[in-house]
Design a protein around this nucleic acid. Structure first.
Lengths: 165, 165
DNA sequence: TCAAGATTGACAGTATGCTGATAATCAGTG
DNA sequence: CACTGATTATCAGCATACTGTCAATCTTGA
């Protein structure tokens, strides 16, 4: 017997695989074709209109080289627009389209169902305990990743832009 | 505020990213260049000499189309050999080389350290509780993934081959 | 104001993971 | 033995993720 099966890293990898598979299944059942990552990006842009890609990446803990492809696909699906910013010509400003907004509204039940299904093996109490510990461990180790979460402690600035730290 | 930050799927994705980053960092510090996935495959082949790729995939919950690339890289690094089986000419029989064996022996402390680091935000008791719940949730949802874990309930057969279920 | 440094986005390259298809081979049945 | 169905591996194609590099642009300080 290898001890691999009991290593946190290996278990997390397995659970993540399951989480993605469950998300796909529930979302496909509901008639949508969105990945977990695309969903997170879409919802976050909706919550922060005119956000730029780097700030978006920080809000959902993506690598900034990954976000480009994700946004590409969302633009291609017609759920996002990407335009050069007036204020900073390096930045691309993101915005949810009407189609994107409609998708967000209709897909949410499937997404929430997926969260329940992936924790189906735990009692409600266990699920709460698990989530609390998962959040604590993740937050504590946040900066060990190249793509740490960068929540806006300050609120959105006048232009809707979020500043990290 | 989006509620994304509290979704188990999103948290797991973040924690998995952290786990991989920590693994890379610790292993690189120790002077090695192995990914988490490659490490799991290497250790598992070592525990089950002459295993074929599908059985190996089941032991560590990889998709069978993923395992081919992983094994390719391990063969290229000189850690594994892959030969056509005598008994079943469809199957490729895997075996750890001396270099692979040496790597396993020397890399293990770094791998174990990585497991501690990624759980650094939890007390020992919390870490135990977290692992128990993670294992329970993962095992319960095992079959929801395309790449479920297939532990050998029966032991290795005469030829070292593991039969699932 | 202008030069140095930081930031934004993009690209190339590598490594998981997945879906779906195919070829080669094996096992079981009539 | 021939046929059918299952199994093993591979391939093409797509979607995360990462490292490292680069050009364009902004910001800051001398």
């Amino acid at each position: 017997m290898t001890q691999i099966d009991d290593m946190p890293g290996h278990l997390v990898r397995r659970f993540q695989q399951i989480a993605v598979a469950v998300f796909h299944a529930e979302v496909a059942d509901a008639g949508f074709d969105l990945t977990p990552v695309q969903y997170a990006a879409l919802v976050s842009v909706n919550a922060h209109p005119d956000i730029d890609q780097v700030t978006l990446a920080g809000l959902i803990a993506y690598d900034r080289t990954t976000i480009a492809g994700v946004v590409d696909r969302l633009v291609q699906k017609g759920f996002l627009t990407r335009e050069v910013s007036d204020r900073d010509r390096r930045a691309r400003v993101l915005r949810v389209t009407d189609a994107g907004l409609e998708t967000i509204g209709n897909i949410t039940p499937a997404v929430e169902e997926a969260q329940k299904v992936m924790l189906g093996g735990l009692t409600d109490e266990e699920a709460r305990a698990f989530l609390r510990l998962l959040r604590k461990a993740t937050d504590a180790a946040n900066d060990l990743s190249r793509a740490p979460l960068r929540t806006s402690s300050t609120d959105a600035t006048a232009d809707g832009r979020i500043r990290a730290k």
